[in-house]
Design a protein around this nucleic acid. Structure first.
Lengths: 150, 150
DNA sequence: TAGTATTAGTTTAATATTTAACAGTTCGAT
DNA sequence: ATCGAACTGTTAAATATTAAACTAATACTA
């Protein structure tokens, strides 16, 4: 026998918003990353390439932080990118704990080819919202994500 | 040399909103699911228990659909829930392709214990937004998630 | 009714992901 | 200067995740 959720109004509203937010993010992510399959790239691999493309060479811990992932995870994802010759690991000589990641030429070419397609996919999907609505959505998400008033 | 993204205004705004939405969802999910670790439950396992708790016995394909996951993935997640005695598989006699999932008593007890904590965590976090803002956010997410005007 | 198409669930192979334990490196305080 | 704290990256073990190939069961269709 199904039990439908009986909570206070506040609880129902919060739960409702929560579910919609997570579903929207899931759906949007799936749609905007579909094109990666053609290049046999995963979302995480694309994220690393994108980070290096926009911020330049970084150490693994920083890439992990930008992508909200653990350093253990970065080891795996970068292993796979390295196997395909898309990134290179350079041990830092002044502080040997660090490994600086660099895009190879192949990696640079690939991300430069994919990124415009990626952006276009996002623009197309977000086109359903007016510029004001996008602005609003961004602000609400920022507030919620950081837990700060602004 | 870092390359900062030079796009049109529309592209920059869309990308910005996109990143904020995905990050907010990621952060919110991480925070509201932290309490599951104490019970050695994963987010996916919790999702299945929650679905069965609120909708009653369902077949695996339906549970997969509700959770936006593949049926192959459901096989794995349900295997692990079954090992722990939290759910049971009942082969359907009239259509033997189907397997109906049932919560065991242990599973029912666990989800009934966890769900209120889960809701409270969501309420606490969403409290940073006014009721109107939550409503707004929900509507914008719904529009975006479904790709429909309303 | 035979043959085909569809559907539910599983398996396999590959990658992702995290926690915990670990190794090596650097920093800091006494 | 040394010893312990803090940090970077890796490994191991467990679970998640998907696409593709597969099995079994049902539905459809000629």
């Amino acid at each position: 026998m199904p039990t439908s959720f009986k909570g206070t109004k506040v609880e129902q509203e919060a739960l409702n918003t929560f579910v919609k937010l997570l579903r929207a993010a899931d759906t949007l992510s799936a749609l905007t990353h579909r094109h990666l399959a053609a290049k046999k790239l995963t979302v995480s691999q694309f994220g690393v390439l994108e980070t290096l493309h926009h911020l330049g060479p970084l150490c693994q811990a920083e890439v992990a932080k930008k992508n909200l992932k653990s350093t253990a995870n970065m080891t795996t994802v970068i292993d796979n990118l390295e196997k395909r010759g898309l990134v290179e690991r350079h041990r830092n000589d002044t502080d040997r704990r660090y490994i600086t990641l660099h895009l190879t030429t192949a990696g640079k070419n690939l991300i430069e080819e994919l990124f415009p397609i990626h952006v276009q996919g996002i623009v197309d999907r977000l086109d359903i919202l007016t510029p004001q609505e996008q602005q609003q959505l961004g602000q609400l998400c920022k507030k919620l994500g950081t837990g700060q008033q602004n």
